[in-house]
Amino acid sequence: MSKLDGKRILACCANGAGSSLMMENAIKKVMTRNGVKLAELRHCPVSEGKSAARNYDVVMFAKPFAKTFEGTDGANTVLIPLKNVMSDKEIETALKEQGLLD
C-alpha cells in the first residue's frame, strides 16, 4: 500500500502539450516503480490547471510557473515545482520530501 494509492495528480505546463506530457511520462515511471495505483494522472495547460488544481491531491509544474500557482491550491493540494520536468528521480525525491512516498 502506498499513500499515493487512489490519489489524483495533475501535471501542468504553458500549453499542456510539451513539458507537461514529459512530466506525465516521468510521473508514470515513478508510480510504476513504487507500485502506486493512482486514481487519476493527467496533464493540462497552466491556464486550466490554475482552476483545476484544487481538485487534485498533487499538482506538478516547471519552476517558472510557481508564481502562477501561488494561492490556487486547495486545502489538501500539494504543489510541487520541478527544476527538470523529465527527471523521474527529482519527482520521486520531491514526493518523498512531501511524505507522499516511502
Binding site: 499542456g16 502539450a17 513539458s19 510557473f65 523529465m86
Partner: peptide, 18 residues
C-alpha cells in the same frame, strides 16, 4: 513564460500548443 523550454544539457524544445 520565460525560457522554460530550455532544459538541462543545453537542449531547447521550442513549441506551442497542440
Amino acid at each position: 513564460y520565460g525560457p522554460y523550454v530550455v532544459f538541462d544539457h543545453n537542449v531547447a524544445m521550442p513549441h506551442t500548443t497542440e
